[in-house]
Design a protein around this nucleic acid. Structure first.
Lengths: 234, 234
DNA sequence: CGCACCAGTTTGGTTTTCCAATTTGGCGCA
DNA sequence: TGCGCCAAATTGGAAAACCAAACTGGTGCG
């Protein structure tokens, strides 16, 4: 009783502490898959934090589908064994902030996969969208302007055509973080604009031809500079 | 005024509607990077939804680093041009639920990259962790039990050794969803347990030898069954 | 003995209220 | 006229109050 809801410092550490305590509770009580967790109210009292903190921690676990919270009933463990549950939760707590190098490195991986898939799975509508994005890119860059944004949208159009919702979601998660950094540290292009356009057109053509191998090659060529940029970082 | 906070149906559609209206507002007012958005209160009145809905929508945009919300000041646009902002927001709204095939397909991509990186970057501590996970896996499977969880933890240990925080985060995001599905539709292994163990040991050995090529090969061989499983889906 | 129903309690979600940090605009002093 | 400072309003965040759905168990009717 007495002191309710202590706020220790800020959010992420408190949340990890709560998640860790939930894990301990699961182990202590030997909870099995589909078992019910105590209510948010009793957890908030037990851990001496606000109910909101508990709710946020549970929402985070829910985003990993480790638990399932149902409105007027309670929060239930997913159909995952305790061993895996423990390991995954520990990894979640240990998750560190994504550094810029991993973002770029991961983007290269995603782009390679998405362009390969897009070449195989693209519909005619997808092709039209990609072509439209390419057209906007060309117009912008050939008028001498910076076309960083149009370039990004071209790649996102390809990602959508890959028909892989997970890759598409991941791409959306990391591209804004990359682009905002590049806007800051932007350097002038050494290569000519026409060459840049040609590289994009090669990607488009390969997708149009449904040639996955050529598409991947063209994409890797397009990102040659970025790969080198990565290397400089290490 | 009068009717405050209409709840249209549930959360995801309302949230997308709000995000879409925020995008429209940015365009209407010609907001530029670092400009300030109206306060949550006036947005909630303007859009006729509860302030909580606004806050959640802004939090979602914040997770993409499209806006930055600062405690007693306001919400500010990130350093991203309007064209990219529009395109990304539209894609976010169009994001569909991740289907199972995408999850598996994406996991294969992540595993391939993470094992290659792990072979190059692993420290001695990483190697110890991977070996320990492998040992637990062997103990479990050789005693005739199902070792799905231990197998997963072995792969997560490799992911951690890849030293790529983004890939590690993505792996954690998709593996729980995959494992819970496999627990349901689990079929008995046709191959012998010893063979399974051998495949895992090959992966471990390649990482130990810092041989990225062999590690990738071993991983692809390990996932041969899963690749076929993917093919069956289409 | 078994099944159906009902009222009280519990629960996650939602709305309202409150708060402390920050901003802002104008007043006063130099 | 210009600079500094203070108080009032603004703001996102946090807590408390409230709600409706779902669960619980107990009772009574068949």
């Amino acid at each position: 009783m007495k002191s309710k809801h202590i706020r220790i410092k800020d959010n992420i550490e408190v949340q990890n502490m709560i998640i860790s305590k939930i894990k301990d509770f699961i182990n202590l009580k030997n909870l099995e898959p589909d078992d019910k967790l105590p209510s948010e109210r009793v957890l908030s009292e037990k851990f001496n934090v606000s109910r909101r903190n508990i709710g946020e921690a549970i929402q985070k676990l829910e985003s990993y589908e480790l638990v399932k919270s149902v409105p007027q009933s309670g929060t239930f463990l997913a159909g995952i064994g305790r061993i895996a549950m423990n390991g995954i939760i520990e990894d979640i707590i240990a998750l560190e902030k994504q550094d810029f190098l991993s973002l770029v490195e991961t983007r290269l991986m995603l782009e390679a996969k998405s362009v390969s898939l897009a070449a195989v799975r693209r519909t005619n509508d997808d092709l039209k969208n990609i072509e439209a994005a390419l057209s906007r890119y060309k117009t912008k860059i050939l008028s001498g302007n910076d076309a960083l944004q149009e370039d990004l949208l071209f790649h996102l159009a390809i990602s959508k055509a890959s028909k892989n919702s997970s890759i598409n979601a991941f791409m959306l998660k990391i591209t804004p973080k990359i682009i905002s950094t590049f806007e800051k540290t932007r350097v002038n292009d050494e290569e000519g604009f026409a060459f840049e356009v040609a590289k994009h057109e090669a990607i488009f053509q390969a997708i149009k031809d449904k040639n996955a191998e050529a598409a991947l090659k063209a994409m890797e060529f397009h990102f040659e500079m970025l790969v080198n940029f990565c290397k400089d970082f290490r």
